[in-house]
Simulated assay, not measured.
Amino acid sequence: MILAGGRSSRLGGVPKSGLVYDGATLLERAVAAARGAGALVVVGPRPDALPAGALTVREDPPFAGPAAAIAAGLDELERSGRPPAPWVLVLACDMPHAAAAVPVLLAALDAEPEADGVLGLSADGRKQPLLAVYSTAALHRGVRERAQAGTLTNAPVFSLLASLDLLTAAVPEHAADDVDTWDDAAALGVHGGPS
């Protein structure tokens, strides 16, 4: 599940998914990071190009935040009629080096498969709920519990995770670096589009 539907307000509304790093858009890099997944859903405006069979959905209302986006992505995967996967990889589209984290996250779950998931742990010690792998059943449970407690609109992602038994795994340096501002983009070598 790739989350690509934010307002990008600190980028003046320029969609992060279309920013470019090393010749590929950030969305293309996120799709590549999820390579090998049984199903792919992008939550956000429908992009121009996606791999065959990829799903798209929009959280309701649009721009309702990542918790609502995760719920919409789960619903879309369920509606697709594909066999449910035991695990869901959740990636924000604005992390150009996220692919380096995916094997680390999967290895952590291989070592402790009874966990409800694993969050990437950035070099500065921050838990990254949008660079994570979750048990599909546990994530559904977290969404239901949050929805029963109140709206998903603009809810913190961590509110979905409150009852989950989650591991953390230190990810490689820069794997969790994201683009929130143009200064972030410049520091990562990300630019506004094809030159």
Rank of each mutant, 00 (worst) to 15 (best):
M1K: 10
M1V: 15
L3M: 03
L3W: 01
L3G: 04
L3S: 02
R10A: 15
G12L: 10
G18W: 07
G23I: 04
G23N: 09
A24V: 07
T25K: 05
E28D: 08
R29F: 06
A30H: 02
V31H: 02
V31G: 08
R35H: 10
L40F: 00
V42N: 12
G44L: 12
P45D: 13
A52F: 09
G53D: 08
G53K: 10
L55M: 03
R58L: 15
P61L: 03
A68L: 14
A69Y: 01
A69M: 04
A71W: 02
G73R: 09
D75P: 00
E78L: 14
R79I: 02
P83I: 09
P84H: 05
P86M: 09
V88N: 00
A92R: 01
H97D: 03
A108W: 02
L109A: 14
L109I: 15
P113I: 03
A115F: 01
D116T: 08
V118P: 10
S122Q: 06
A123F: 08
R126Y: 14
K127Y: 07
L130D: 14
A132G: 06
Y134S: 04
S135V: 00
A138S: 00
A138I: 06
H140F: 11
E145M: 14
A147Q: 12
P156Q: 03
F158Y: 07
L161T: 03
A162N: 09
L166I: 04
P172N: 05
E173V: 13
H174A: 06
A175I: 01
A176Y: 01
A176I: 07
D177T: 07
V179H: 12
D180Y: 07
D184K: 10
A185N: 13
A185L: 10
A185G: 15
A187Q: 14
A187T: 13
L188R: 10
V190P: 00
H191M: 08
G193N: 11
G193F: 02
